[in-house]
Structures are given as structure tokens and as C-alpha cells.
């Protein structure tokens, strides 16, 4: 049984992958079926580890030969030593954690750098849904009804920037992806990103 490499990586994961340097140690928190880890292993020759909540995800990863443990971002990150990884990735998971600040602090403690991606609650369609329809938003990156969404801690790009500033976390790079997965152009990034970006990707580290 051989695993067919998935080179059709989701565009937001491709954008994350581009931030990872070759031949580094990487921890992917919430690694799902291991698609990103596998891509990084094959293309950037990383030494990769993963944490995944769902057993189906974990078993799929281990069966592909990836080093992945069943675990939870909220409870299991505290067991990892400081600066054990060059990059710690948390993609599309921050908004589903119980204690996002603790998780974020753990990310920049365990990793020399962290890459965090999340659905932007400041996206204009989200704002429009609330402002015009008066309903909780349903978009491509937020497909669940309010009563069955795993997302319990939404934030906007601006909120995330403010939190990083407050916790003295340095933002090295921030990207906003439009709904067609293209980048929000550079000139709008500081102002328009929070409005036009459906998803956000941050490269951060702890100020030392």
C-alpha cells in the first residue's frame, strides 16, 4: 500500500507552506489528514511532527509514515519543550480553541516562528451578513450554522494584530486571501485586508 502524494494542496495551505524554510523542524498543530506535512516532507525535506484531534486524521497520517500524535491544541501543547521547532503551524484552528491566548503563547514558545491562519471575521461578506441580514454569517470558510460550528472564538485580522501587540508577539508577515484564494494586493494590505480578506495567514515570533 503506497500513499499517493497530494500535490493539490489547498491554496491557503500552499500559502502557509511557502513560509516554511527547507530542512527545518516543523510541528503542525491540527494537521488533519497530514496533507501539509506530507507536502513539506516531500518538497522542503522538513523533519515534521503533527498533532491531530480526530482519530481518523491521526490514523491516516501514521499510515502514511508521518509522526503524528492524537492530541488537542488546548491541552497537549504544554508538554512540548521551548524552541523545540523552527516552525509551529496552526491552520484554521485558533478560532476553535478554548483558550486562544494560551495556545498562541504556546505556539511562539515551542517554535522559533509560528504560522497562524484563521477565517477573518472582518471579511465584508461576514460584516454584510450581520449588518444587512441580521444573521450569523455563512461563507465558504465559515460554512456551519451558529449552533453546530466548532468555532467558538472568532476574531478579525485587526483583533489578531492587536492581540499580538498586547502580548509582545512580533508579526513578521501577514497575508490576506480573497475568496478566490488570490492575495489581497500589497497596497491594500494594511487597510483593505481586514475587509477584503476571507482568510488571514500570519508569520509571528516571540520578541526576545
Amino acid at each position: 500500500m503506497t500513499f499517493t502524494p497530494n500535490y493539490n494542496l489547498r491554496p491557503d495551505l500552499l500559502a502557509v507552506a511557502e513560509m516554511v524554510k527547507s530542512n527545518t523542524r516543523v510541528l503542525d498543530v491540527g494537521c488533519g489528514d497530514g496533507a501539509l506535512l506530507y507536502y513539506l516532507l516531500k518538497n522542503k525535506h522538513i523533519d515534521g511532527r503533527g498533532i491531530e484531534l480526530s482519530m481518523d486524521g491521526v490514523n491516516a497520517c501514521v499510515a502514511q509514515g508521518l509522526s503524528v500524535v492524537q492530541g488537542d491544541a488546548d491541552t497537549d501543547l504544554s508538554y512540548y519543550p521551548t524552541k523545540a521547532f523552527d516552525f509551529v503551524i496552526l491552520s484554521q484552528t485558533l478560532q476553535a480553541t478554548r483558550a486562544p491566548v494560551e495556545v498562541l503563547e504556546n505556539l511562539v514558545r515551542i517554535g522559533r516562528r509560528a504560522i497562524v491562519s484563521f477565517p477573518n471575521f472582518g471579511y465584508w461578506r461576514v460584516r454584510a451578513s450581520l449588518a444587512i441580514k441580521g444573521k450569523m454569517p455563512l461563507t465558504k470558510s465559515l460554512p456551519d450554522e451558529w449552533y453546530n460550528t466548532p468555532n467558538i472564538h472568532f476574531c478579525t485580522i485587526k483583533d489578531f494584530v492587536l492581540l499580538c501587540n498586547k502580548r509582545s508577539i512580533i508579526i513578521e508577515k501577514k497575508l490576506a486571501l480573497k475568496s478566490n484564494n488570490s492575495l489581497v494586493p500589497q497596497i491594500y494590505r494594511n487597510f483593505g485586508g481586514n475587509l477584503m480578506g476571507e482568510q488571514a495567514i500570519f508569520l509571528i515570533h516571540r520578541n526576545e
Binding site: R49, V58, C61, V62, S67, V68, V69, D76, Y80, A84
Partner: peptide
Amino acid sequence: VHALNSVAASVSFAE
């Protein structure tokens, strides 16, 4: 697994 994680060992874990 937690002990192995805490020394950054290479570990997979499946239940």
C-alpha cells in the same frame, strides 16, 4: 507520549 513530546522525541500515537 507526553514524556516523549517533552523531550521532542519523534513519536506517533494512535488510539
